[in-house]
Amino acid sequence: MRVAMPDAVPPRRRAAVLWLAVIAPLPWAVGAAAQAPTTAPALNETIPAGSVLRLLGRDVTGPKGEVVAQVMNVLVNAAGQPQAAVLDYGGFLGVGKRRIAVAWRALRFAPDQQTGAITLGFGPDQLKAVPEFKPDGPLIVAAPAESSPPDAPPPAQD
């Protein structure tokens, strides 16, 4: 006499359960994969030489073409856009350098040039009122007046 096995699952229901087990986690896995960093190796991207320039330590020339500062640091916001550059300005033989921050838009870049690659739109007289850069304090940068034409030396403001 055959007794029905109480824990035997009918074949069709078993197939359905198996399918669900495979399909159900899929959206979660895809979602997780979309958020987690891929483990693909980094691509080697070529940037043409002469289209970019290294910044840190580079000389900055003033409006008259003389070297006035060196770039010490760059300040970027959350979107990765540079807001200001920290410069070691002035000085003779290393004596008398002042660390000041200038707004990014006060700088002009010419990556293809060896000398004069970075130009500051302010002359020394215009920077007299700019305070020293304090890493822990309120950030005050020297900024050009908005209404002046881009090539004329703009007055510095706090």
């Binding site: 002035g90 033989l93 008398g96």
Partner: peptide, 25 residues
Amino acid sequence: MLPLAGTQATARSGTIANLVIAACI
């Protein structure tokens, strides 16, 4: 005193700052 005076000169003397600092040295 000299480095501090030099920084003052850079801040206040504008275009002739380097000359002032050289003279201070």
